[in-house]
Design a protein around this nucleic acid. Structure first.
Length: 628
RNA sequence: GGGCCUAUGGCGCAGCAUGGAUAGCGUGUUGGACUUCUAAUCCAAAAGUCAAGGGAUCGAAGCCCUUUGGGCCCA
C-alpha cells in the first residue's frame, strides 16, 4: 500500500459523510496537498457551496467536524482552511511504515490498468538511408519510455519498428551507389549509416538540383524497387539492411529494444492492401470519384470542410496512405497475418528477442505482435494523415480509442548550432534536414557527452579504473540525452544546442543519478543490510516525511503517465524525488549518530528511496551508477 | 484560403485535462556553505500586468469568444 491508501481512506469517509447529507453525486477530488497545507487536500467544500448556500469555509468546518467521528487509521486530524479547502494530516508512523514496506516489494509501482491486455507501440520508423539524428532520438525515446510505462501499468507491450525500405529516400541512395559511383565500403571505416546519410544521400540529392534529367533515373529505380525480384530491389535490400543495422546499434546503445521489425516492402507485396481495400469498398469507406478534380480516383471523404483524400490515383497507383492503412489494420489484428517471422541475426542488449517479418515460406514461425490497442509515435507534422487513419480504424474496430497517434513537436537546431554546420539563420532556429545534411547525429552527441562525463568522473575519482569510468560515463551520457528528450511536454518544440543542451547540472539526469550515488554511498559505508524492521516513529523530521510521501506517490505517477501517455510525468517524478532526497541529505545525517535505532530507521528510508528511484529511472531507460 | 500546435521572471520550462490556498522549478545574476554520509550538491536574495482584449463565474494562468506574435500541416 502506498500514499494511495490514505487518499482512498479519506475519499471513502467523505463519500459516507456526503451520503448522510444526501449529496452523494458530487465528484470531488482528494489529492496530495501543496506544501504547507497538511498532507492531503480536498476541494469538496467548493463544490457544495452552491447547493448548500454556505461559504466553502463554513462547509469545510462542518465536514471537518463530521470527519472527526469517522473511523480512520491513517488520518490524524482534519482541518478546515479559511480558504475553504479541507486539509488532512496523516498519521505518519503508520503511513510511513506502509509506504516503506511496500517499496521493498518487487511489485512496487505496478498499476492495474492494462490487466494483461496487449498493446502495440510503434516508434522509430526512420527511413533506412541515414544515421539517426537528434530529432529521431526524440521519437525513439518517447516511444521507448511509453512502452516501459505501459508495461509497468500491466499491459503486454509489443514494440514495433516500421522499416520504410521502398520509398524515394531509399531510391536516392541507390542512385548514388549505382550511378554516381559511390563505393559500397565507406572510407576510413566510417559507420555505414553515417556514410550513406552524410555522403551518398546528401551529395546525390545535391546533384538532382543541378541536373533535372536525373529525375528519370530516380523514377526508374523507384519502379524497379517495387518488383521484389529485380536486381535493384535485391541491392536495395542489402544496403537498407546494412543501414538498419547501424541504426539499431545506436538504439541499443541508448537502451532501446524492439520486439519486431516490419518491412514496408513486404507489406506492399503481402497482399494486405487488396484485402483492406476490398473491405473499405464493402463498408463504403472509400468511394470512386466520377467527376471533379479527383475524377477516376478512389477517395476517402473528408469530414465537414476537410478535403477528400485520394488513396488510389486515376492511374491505379496507391498513394502513400495506402501503405499506412493496411499496416494500421494489421497492428490492430484486424487482418489475417501474411507474415512469417525469423529472429534478427544480431541479438539485442538485454533479454528481449528481436524478430523480423519475412514472406519466405521456409521460416514457418508464426507470432502475434498485434495489439488490442495501438500507439503510433510519429511527429505532429503527420497529424492529418494519422487522423484519417484513426477515424478509419475506429470504424473497423469496436473498441473505442483503439488506435492512438502519439504526436510530438519536432527538434530544431539553435542558430548557433546551425552555424557550426554552415547555415546562417539570422538568430532563428533551423529545421533539421537529412537531405541538406543539416542535422546533428545521435552518435555524435553521445560521443561528445561521453568525453565530457569521462573527464568529469576522472577528475572526481583519480583512483578509479578505466572500465568503471567507462560504465559511469556511458550511463550518464545516455541518461542525459534521454532525460533531455523526455522532460518537457510533447507539444513543445525542443531547440537543440550543442553546448547548452548538454548541461550536467540542475534539472538533468546527472543530478538525479548523482542523488542515487549519494544514497548508495551511505548504504555502502554503513556496512549494514537495511531492513524494514525498524522504529518508524523515529522518522519525524519534515524532510524525512516529505521524502516518504514522495516515495509513496510512485504508483500514482505511473498511473497518470500511462493514462495520458505522458512520459514527462515520470521524469518530473524522478526529479522531485531526487530533490526531496537532497533536502533530507542536507538536514539529516544517517551515519555516526551514536543512535543505532535512528541510524537503522534512516537507513531503511535511504534504501527505500534508492529502490524506488531505480525503478522510476528504469521507466525512463536510465541506469543509476552507485558511484559517480 | 482551411486546419493543428504554441505564448507563464533575462533565457528554458512545470502548473491548464478536473477553475479555488502563497503561480512553482531549472538556468543566468548577486551573496553564502566542502576538516562532515561525494559540492554533478545545498541555502539565501533580486527578478512575473501568466501575449492582448472581452465574456460566463462568488472566484480564472486554467473555461468560452476575438485579436496578435511564433511554429507546422493541407490547398
Amino acid at each position: 500500500m502506498t500514499f494511495k491508501s490514505i487518499l482512498d481512506e479519506i475519499e471513502n469517509n467523505l463519500k459516507k459523510i456526503l451520503f448522510d447529507l444526501s449529496m452523494s453525486d458530487v465528484e470531488f477530488s482528494v489529492e496530495p496537498a501543496k506544501p504547507g497545507f497538511g498532507d492531503v487536500s480536498s476541494n469538496v467544500s467548493f463544490l457544495l457551496a452552491k447547493s448548500l448556500k454556505k461559504s466553502p469555509k463554513e462547509i469545510a468546518e462542518i465536514l471537518s467536524e463530521k470527519y472527526s467521528s469517522c473511523t480512520s487509521t491513517l488520518v490524524l486530524k482534519s482541518d478546515a482552511h479559511p480558504s475553504g479547502y479541507l486539509n488532512f494530516f496523516a498519521n505518519w508512523t503508520k503511513l510511513g511504515q506502509l509506504i516503506l514496506s511496500e517499496s521493498y516489494l518487487d511489485t512496487c509501482g505496478d498499476v492495474e490498468l492494462g490487466n494483461g491486455s496487449s498493446i502495440v507501440v510503434e516508434h522509430t520508423s526512420v527511413n533506412p538511408n541515414k544515421a539517426l539524428h537528434i530529432g529521431h532520438i526524440r521519437n525513439i525515446i518517447i516511444g521507448d519510455t511509453v512502452s516501459r510505462i505501459l508495461g509497468k501499468a500491466g499491459y503486454k507491450v509489443n514494440v514495433l519498428n516500421y522499416i520504410d525500405d521502398s520509398g524515394l529516400q531509399v531510391a536516392d541512395i541507390i542512385v548514388g551507389f549505382k550511378h554516381f559511383g559511390y563505393a559500397e565500403e565507406p572510407p576510413n571505416g566510417k559507420k555505414f549509416d553515417h556514410y550513406c546519410g552524410d555522403d551518398v544521400y546528401v551529395k546525390t540529392t545535391e546533384k538532382y538540383e543541378v541536373d533535372s534529367s536525373l529525375e528519370e533515373i530516380r523514377k526508374n529505380v523507384l519502379k524497379e524497387l517495387e518488383d521484389g525480384d529485380s536486381e535493384t530491389a535485391k541491392f536495395g535490400d542489402k544496403i537498407t539492411r546494412r543501414v538498419l543495422a547501424g541504426q539499431l546499434e545506436t538504439c541499443w546503445n541508448f537502451g532501446v529494444t524492439y520486439d519486431c521489425l516490419n518491412f514496408e516492402s513486404q507489406i506492399i507485396r503481402s497482399g494486405l492492401w487488396s484485402e483492406i481495400f476490398e473491405k473499405l469498398k464493402e463498408m463504403k469507406l472509400v468511394e470512386f470519384e466520377n467527376e471533379g478534380k479527383n475524377a477516376g480516383c478512389w477517395v476517402i471523404r473528408g469530414d465537414g470542410k476537410e478535403e477528400d483524400k485520394v488513396i488510389v490515383r486515376s492511374n491505379g497507383t496507391a498513394t502513400y496512405i495506402a501503405k499506412d492503412i493496411p499496416y494500421a489494420a494489421w497492428k490492430l489484428g484486424l487482418l489475417g497475418d501474411p507474415f512469417n517471422y525469423k529472429k534478427y541475426k544480431k541479438p539485442q542488449t538485454g533479454n528481449r528477442i528481436l524478430w523480423q517479418t519475412t514472406l519466405k515460406e521456409t521460416a514457418k514461425i508464426s507470432k502475434n505482435f498485434t495489439g488490442e490497442k495501438v500507439v503510433t509515435v510519429i511527429d505532429s507534422r503527420q497529424a492529418n494523415l494519422q487522423k484519417i487513419i484513426t477515424v478509419l480504424m475506429d470504424k473497423f474496430k469496436s473498441v473505442p480509442d483503439a488506435y492512438n497517434h502519439l504526436g510530438y513537436e519536432s527538434v530544431t537546431l539553435s542558430s548557433n548550432t546551425a552555424k557550426t554546420l554552415g547555415l546562417e539563420t539570422d538568430g532563428k532556429q533551423a529545421q533539421m534536414s537529412g537531405r541538406k545534411g543539416l542535422y546533428v547525429s545521435a552518435d555524435s552527441v553521445y560521443d561528445i557527452l561521453k568525453e565530457k562525463t569521462k573527464e568529469e568522473t576522472k577528475k572526481r575519482h583519480p583512483e578509479m579504473d578505466d572500465s568503471e569510468i567507462e560504465i559511469i560515463a556511458h550511463s550518464v551520457s545516455v541518461g542525459t540525452i534521454r532525460y533531455e528528450m523526455i522532460k518537457q511536454d510533447l507539444d513543445k518544440i525542443i531547440t537543440f544546442d550543442l553546448t547548452k543542451s548538454l548541461s550536467l547540472e540542475g534539472d538533468t539526469s546527472p543530478y538525479i543519478q548523482y542523488t542515487h550515488a549519494r544514497a548508495s554511498r551511505i548504504l555502502e559505508k554503513s556496512g549494514r543490510v537495511p531492513t524494514i524492521d525498524v522504529d518508524f516513529t523515529l522518522l519525524k523530521e519534515n524532510s524525512e516525511l516529505d521524502l516518504i510521501k514522495n516515495i509513496g506517490l510512485f504508483n500514482l505517477q505511473v498511473r497518470d503517465a500511462a493514462n495520458n501517455l505522458s512520459p514527462k510525468v515520470i521524469a518530473r517524478y524522478c526529479y522531485d524525488l531526487a530533490v526531496s532526497f537532497n533536502s533530507f541529505y542536507e538536514k539529516s545525517k544517517v551515519l555516526e549518530l551514536g543512535d543505532v535505532e535512528l541510524e537503522n530507521s534512516r537507513l531503511c528510508l535511504v534504501n527505500s528511496f534508492k529502490i524506488v528511484l531505480e525503478k522510476a529511472l528504469d521507466l525512463l531507460g536510465i541506469q543509476a551508477p552507485d558511484r559517480m
